[in-house]
């Protein structure tokens, strides 16, 4: 397909070998990209303001910022592994943000957090019912639910005054301990470990991959596909709610646009991480790196004073370029 020049035999072979490594172990390549991007940002920052970017503080900040995105992308990863996509993760997170900050004062923080999680799980369950039982296309179902939730939230936000964010949530979302460790890692790391291990070493994880790969085969193997999908969407809602709680802690107040900017990056992070949008292959490890890469990239663009418009265009180009690269490596053999 690519019009290669005649003398590229060796570099082409080397490129193919590199592609094989990438396709077999996207994590290696992605880690490299992450580190390289960090170094580039450092260089640019030094050139611009004379300050270093490659500092423990900035690394810690990157992880702090990446956590909500990575959690939104966690649910997204599970859903995309089954061959679907969830475009309601941002509004679900927003719902959790409103619920956790709006009910904490009257009912206590614990109640508020549980309620927020329950809302997330519930919204996900509705998505799941639509997708799994009524066989609605996931895109439509989740976009529809997202539009319904946003409408409801708009009404809610008009009738309520801004509520206070509980201290714990605030700390979780924006503070660090031991100077460099963000509190949100305490939430993110266990969930990440659970997902990575669960996908590999649990029957449910196997079924997620299986359903994404071939639902007909799953049915014939006795798998009730709807059960798998239902739980996946519900879990996605719950993880989105966790992300929403971290976001409201970080922003110190809930507003309607609190999670919206993360919707498309959540898909981008999964795609960058090497999960097939058609389902059946991938994993959460790549997604984490995808989220980190996007976060550093965002910092870089901010340092470069890029407009919101330019950022968006770049995001688009990156998703496209990486998806293209993955498509090439997987069709190579």
């Amino acid at each position: 397909m690519s019009a290669g020049t005649p003398q590229v035999a060796t570099p082409a072979a080397r490129l193919r070998a590199a592609q094989r490594v990438l396709s077999d172990n996207p994590a290696i390549a992605l880690t490299f990209v992450f580190v390289a991007l960090f170094v580039v940002t450092d260089i640019v920052n030094r050139a611009q303001s004379g300050k270093a970017f490659l500092t423990p503080t900035q690394v810690s900040t990157t992880f702090l910022y990446a956590a909500p995105l990575a959690l939104l992308a966690a649910g997204q990863t599970l859903v995309m592994l089954t061959g679907g996509v969830d475009l309601s993760v941002a509004t679900t997170a927003t719902t959790a943000a409103f619920v956790s900050s709006g009910t904490a004062h009257d009912h206590g923080t614990g109640y508020a957090l549980l309620l927020a999680l329950a809302f997330g799980f519930g919204i996900g369950l509705v998505n799941g019912i639509g997708v799994a039982i009524f066989r609605v296309n996931p895109l439509i179902m989740t976009l529809g639910i997202s539009s319904v939730t946003l409408g409801a939230l708009t009404i809610y936000s008009q009738t309520r005054f801004v509520a206070l964010v509980p201290n714990i949530v605030n700390t979780l979302g924006s503070s660090r301990f031991f100077k460099y460790v963000p509190y949100d890692l305490l939430v993110w790391a266990p969930i990440a470990a659970l997902i990575i291990l669960g996908l590999r070493f649990s029957g449910f994880g196997r079924m997620i991959f299986a359903v994404g790969d071939n639902p007909v085969a799953c049915r014939l193997a006795g798998v009730r596909v709807w059960q798998v999908l239902l739980l996946v969407y519900a879990l996605c809602g719950a993880f989105s709610a966790v992300a929403g709680i971290l976001l409201v802690g970080f922003n110190d107040a809930a507003d309607l646009g609190i999670a919206a900017p993360f919707l498309l990056p959540s898909v981008a992070a999964v795609v960058i991480g090497g999960t097939s949008i058609l389902g059946g292959s991938g994993g959460y490890g790549g997604t984490i790196l995808g989220a980190l890469i996007l976060t550093v990239l965002d910092s870089l663009l901010t340092i470069l004073n890029a407009s919101q418009a330019l950022k968006q265009i770049l995001y688009g180009a990156i998703i496209l370029a990486l998806a293209w690269l993955y498509a090439r490596t997987s069709s190579g053999d």
Partner: peptide
């Protein structure tokens, strides 16, 4: 094509029905 998970490994394919409940 009705019975296999084409992208998954031989092992996962063979073990798949074990996790159907």
């Amino acid at each position: 094509l009705l019975a296999l998970l084409p992208q998954r490994s031989v092992r996962e394919n063979i073990a798949a029905p074990r996790y159907n409940r």
